[in-house]
Design a protein around this nucleic acid. Structure first.
Length: 221
DNA sequence: TGCCAGGCCCTCTTTAGGGCCTT
């Protein structure tokens, strides 16, 4: 059986990496992964792991994340943590804020251990640019404040950021449902939303809702 | 502190350039 056929459409993994820098192609590595599993809009599970990249992180990263070199010395190797994480995300679609960044590190770290994943990515930042066009900007912290998403004040730690991204994701789904009267919002629609011009997003959602209604009527018939 | 890279978006564009966002 193909892995893609096993994906649960009601379940997504919202993830966030802390890393040594911006680019795995330049030698940067992951130092922490955090993720939450959402099942039918409810938080069902968490994953958090510091990992030792085998190199020292800069003072800038220590200051930004609060993750020190001393903390990483005693952490398990990236290979061990990422192997567990590959099991955690198996068969599920994935969400991240500025997903292109997290996808590069996920791909790079899993490639190192010969693992992969079958889910597809959606980006909460690209979706938010279309749903919340009046927000001051679309940084995660700004959107959390803008939408009043509960948090404990921790930023730039993987699990905390993943939980806030999950809150933002659920909030967007709720706002789209309320504004456009969706009965349900497929994951693929959120991917498509991220690809339409921002100015055309409202029209896109209106047309998508009408298509959704037609499908539902057909099911009744 | 701000740069590094990569992908994406927007517009005074499309044979381009600047800005956003992630660590």
């Amino acid at each position: 059986m193909q892995q893609a056929a096993c994906r649960n459409a009601d379940t997504v993994i919202v993830l966030d990496f802390e890393t040594t820098g911006m680019s795995p192609d330049q030698g940067d590595r992951a130092i922490e992964i955090g993720a939450v599993k959402l099942e039918a809009g409810q938080l069902a599970d968490r994953f958090q792991g510091l990992m030792n990249p085998g190199l020292r992180v800069s003072a800038f990263i220590e200051g930004l994340t609060g993750i020190s070199n001393e903390m990483l010395v005693g952490a398990p190797a990236c290979e061990e943590v990422m192997n567990e994480f590959a099991d955690f995300i198996a068969g599920h679609d994935l969400v991240a804020h500025n997903a292109s960044f997290d996808r590069r590190f996920l791909d790079a770290e899993l490639a190192r251990i010969g693992r992969g994943y079958s889910g597809e990515f959606a980006c909460s930042m690209l979706a938010a640019r279309r749903v919340y066009r009046d927000a001051p900007d679309h940084k995660l912290g700004t959107l959390v404040a803008y939408k009043g998403i509960p948090h404990d004040g921790t930023f730039h730690r993987a699990l905390a950021d993943a939980e806030m991204t999950a809150g933002l994701w659920l909030g967007m789904l709720g706002d789209i449902t309320a504004r456009h009267e969706f009965a349900n919002i497929p994951f693929s629609l959120m991917q498509e939303l991220a690809r339409v011009p921002a100015a055309a997003a409202a029209g896109f959602l209106g047309r998508a809702r009408r298509r959704n209604q037609v499908k539902q009527k057909c099911r009744v018939c």
